[in-house]
């Protein structure tokens, strides 16, 4: 990914920033000039929860240039209801199933950009059990 493009995508890639429509309250990702539901232009930045469940998943066999297979990809349904496409990480393929609770983490997305820098962004992993405060 070219550096200017990576820079442009940083709020979406680092913070899952989409938009909320102040007219119909719909949340959308990525940002657009109009609300996808009601076409209003009254949109404000809105950070997504980053928590959801696996809606569908697949293991990538032959990978496109710049990626090393095998790795897992998924449609994730966020708590807000909308879907997101992302890689899954920190999980064995046989443990992935539709409905698995997952959360966003920041990970390396592309390992060898043409200019040698690394591209970071969101991936999703199974929600870790939280230790109760004693």
């Amino acid at each position: 990914m070219d550096l200017a493009r990576y820079h442009r995508l940083r709020s979406a890639y680092y913070r899952l920033e989409g938009q909320r429509c102040t007219s119909c309250q719909a949340v959308q990702f990525p940002a657009r000039t109009t609300c996808r539901i009601c076409r209003a232009r009254t949109l404000e930045p809105h950070r997504l929860s980053g928590r959801g469940t696996v809606y569908s998943h697949a293991e990538v066999g032959p990978a496109p240039r710049g990626f090393a297979s095998p790795y897992l990809v998924a449609l994730v349904q966020l708590e807000e209801g909308l879907l997101l496409t992302a890689q899954l990480t920190d999980v064995d393929p046989e443990d992935v199933m539709i409905g698995l609770p997952v959360e966003m983490v920041t990970r390396r997305i592309q390992e060898h950009g043409a200019q040698g820098y690394l591209v970071y962004g969101y991936k999703f992993r199974p929600i870790l059990p939280r230790r109760k405060a004693s």
Binding site: G61, Q87, I109
Partner: peptide
Amino acid sequence: EASHGMSFVALSAL
């Protein structure tokens, strides 16, 4: 999609 490593086959698999 593509920048996250999605291939055409993977999207069909989903």
